[in-house]
Design a protein around this nucleic acid. Structure first.
Lengths: 165, 165
DNA sequence: TTTAAATACAAAAAAATAATCTGTCAAAGA
DNA sequence: TCTTTGACAGATTATTTTTTTGTATTTAAA
């Protein structure tokens, strides 16, 4: 197993996670202050949380608009054959597409749900026509073009009762 | 305007953004080394990129599974009335729901597309029945339950030709 | 063309933080 | 009780961040 937690997460650990989740570049000094520890044990906890895989990485969020990705779109994809091999091939192909930020295998009407950022309509057409629809085994697609991003966050609700699993 | 770029982004800026996007906690010393500057101008650039809104924040990614959010679901929501007021009310209500990580106003069959993480089926039922479907003006919904997360990243493709806008 | 102002940079110095080390305390088990 | 283990604070050292200083280059005005 990858996520082996030898020790249970206590309130302080959850506080650390909650804080880093919102402020990934906070100093250990400030973090220690927030969670009520001195820096040494605070840092030890962070390192352990990283090692145990609870903290999966630190990322800066870059303004998509400013990078020329003014358009956000979700695309449903259905495959002709739902064989394991077809799924595997599709997975591999789609994961390497740079515009594709997310791809999920879903139950329901479609087979895959893809989230992609592109510059504009012409790039969207290119993405769909030249990249997605030409992937192995694709039958059809349906797109949801985002008109307004109401909410977008990575932050999970972390409170004293988490984790609940 | 919020994203006022007084200066155009050069190759070094893009390199900084690309690096921070993947490693949000890198030190300025190391970052400067990567982009080929000394620490002072490197840090000045980062500060400016933050001030100008190109860097929107730094975030640690926490393992959802370990936090008790083993289930990922996308929910399409249609409203009965597509009035601006109805949208506004729905926006406000859904943005405050903790399980909802994303909510987008979309064109296409549905009105909103929501991404939510919950613990399990019973929490999903509660989310749908007690939170989403009781929001003002909701007509109906359709869910895509994620069986496998093929790809999930925040990283935009940033190369020397970006931004292209 | 020359001068002045602005910008970007490197290098050095100061301040702050990260990382390591040491010792104490408390809990768990022999 | 004694020992071991784990978590912690405080001190120390190493490293990084931040500020300061000075230089080179560019831009705009004289």
């Amino acid at each position: 197993m990858n996520t082996k937690q030898k020790r249970k997460l206590d309130k302080i650990d959850l506080n650390i996670l909650r804080t880093l989740q919102e402020n990934g570049r906070i100093s250990y000094v400030d973090l220690a202050d927030i969670v009520g520890l001195s820096t040494t044990p605070c840092m030890e906890r962070v390192k352990r949380l990283e090692k145990d895989g609870l903290i999966q990485g630190y990322y800066a969020r870059i303004d998509p608009q400013a990078m020329g990705y003014g358009m956000l779109v979700f695309v449903e994809i259905s495959l002709s054959y739902q064989s394991p091999d077809a799924f595997l091939k599709f997975n591999k192909a789609v994961a390497s597409l740079p515009y594709v930020l997310e791809c999920h295998l879903v139950s329901g009407d479609a087979d895959f749900l893809i989230k992609a950022r592109i510059a504009d309509m012409s790039e969207y057409r290119a993405l769909l026509g030249e990249m997605l629809l030409t992937l192995p085994g694709v039958k059809n697609s349906k797109s949801y073009i985002v008109m307004e991003e109401v909410k977008e966050t990575l932050s999970l609700p972390i409170n004293p009762s988490s984790p609940r699993g």
